[in-house]
Write a protein that binds this DNA or RNA. Structure first.
Length: 337
DNA sequence: CATCAGGGCCCTG
DNA sequence: CAGGGCCCTGAT
């Protein structure tokens, strides 16, 4: 049995982040703060919290646990994102500069939406969606490693179960961070989990996903994968690297390619659950008798071309915002809680 | 009580 | 390349 080193603060159960610095980020215009900073289709997780105009998010950057409060500080046309960063000790200016660049990447703040906006402004389906959500971007708040873990707990599970598994993992291996009057869990570092036995993970009721988590953790802890280097590689190579990980297949790779690596071009894979919803959303078909996935793929890629993943993201998120407001009841039976 | 499928993926034949 | 099996859970 492996013994983990536990610091006095961690033993108390909470790590207090008392040092504080501010950052201001300038996204490309237009920018939609809430639609970028909150995705109503994502399952809730105790590493973040959202209310209109503000997202609380823990983060690990260069091994340092951080607490973020991200606030809308501008308008759609003249956007500003205000980030308050809590940490254990004072962060050097060089760290803050690196962090600003990392956040701009993760939240897709440099995305150029002009071509997309122009092309779909008068599209019968995407046009109205654009008027509501112009400036929204697919984004990630996690590192690649963290997103892989999230993707693994999503697999073959109903929403409630994914929530339970993520919570159990964060409570066992993460760190409870106290900052700005809040308590949220921060992710563990791959090295913290490396060497943990599969059985220990199974005790958290993650089931057969335990092996995937162990193998993915090994890949990162032992330097087999470098997220920053991978960002600069071609899409095909990124996909290949993801599919090469044990437990990562086309569905998980698809989420990561769009959210983490910002690949927003043609669709390459449609998982069964999305197939049912797309059949209704884009073709008005009964979700109980969905259009075959390969045919759906061709139809959507023909309709949305080089912006297919982005266009589908807009329609999808719009649907879930409407659903949350009780405006898309047909989705109810398709979301297994 | 038993059975089943779920926001996949791996492995086998 | 199709299909069985997998952890676990809540629905039936």
């Amino acid at each position: 049995m492996r013994v983990r080193a536990i610091s006095p603060t961690a033993m108390a159960g909470v790590l207090r982040l008392t040092s504080r610095r501010d950052l201001e980020l300038a996204p490309t215009s237009p920018f939609h703060f809430d639609a970028t900073m909150h995705k109503p289709d994502h399952f809730p997780s105790p590493d973040n919290a959202w209310a209109p105009g503000v997202r609380w998010q823990t983060m690990r950057w260069r091994g340092e646990p951080l607490g973020l409060r991200v606030a809308d500080g501008g308008t759609r046309a003249h956007p500003r994102v205000l980030v308050r960063v809590w940490s254990r000790g004072r962060l050097p200016g060089e760290f803050m500069e690196g962090l600003a660049g990392e956040l701009a990447w993760r939240w897709n703040l440099e995305l150029d939406l002009r071509g997309f906006n122009a092309r779909f402004a008068s599209d019968p389906q995407i046009g109205p969606v654009l008027r509501r959500w112009r400036g929204m971007r697919p984004a990630s708040w996690s590192s690649l490693y963290e997103y892989l873990v999230i993707a693994i707990v999503l697999q073959n599970a109903v929403v409630h179960r994914s929530i339970q598994m993520m919570r159990a993992l964060l409570e066992r291996y993460g760190t409870l961070l106290r900052y700005g009057g809040r308590e949220l869990y921060g992710f563990w570092d791959p090295a913290d989990l490396d060497g943990v036995a599969e059985e220990e993970l199974r005790a958290l009721k993650v089931g057969y996903r335990a092996r995937s988590i162990v193998r993915v953790t090994e890949a990162f802890a032992r330097g087999g994968l470098d997220e920053i280097a991978l960002r600069g590689r071609p899409e095909a190579e990124q996909r290949e690297a993801l599919l090469g990980l044990y437990g990562i297949g086309p569905a998980s790779a698809g989420y990561i390619l769009s959210d983490v690596f910002h690949r927003l071009g043609p669709l390459t894979h449609i998982p069964p659950w999305e197939q049912r919803i797309y059949s209704m959303l884009f073709l008005g078909r009964d979700p109980g008798r969905p259009v075959p996935a390969d045919r759906l793929l061709r139809i959507l890629n023909r309709r949305f071309g080089e912006h297919a993943t982005l266009a589908v993201h807009y329609a999808w998120e719009d649907l879930f915002w409407r659903w949350r407001r009780g405006k898309a009841a047909w989705l109810d039976p398709l979301i297994r809680r």
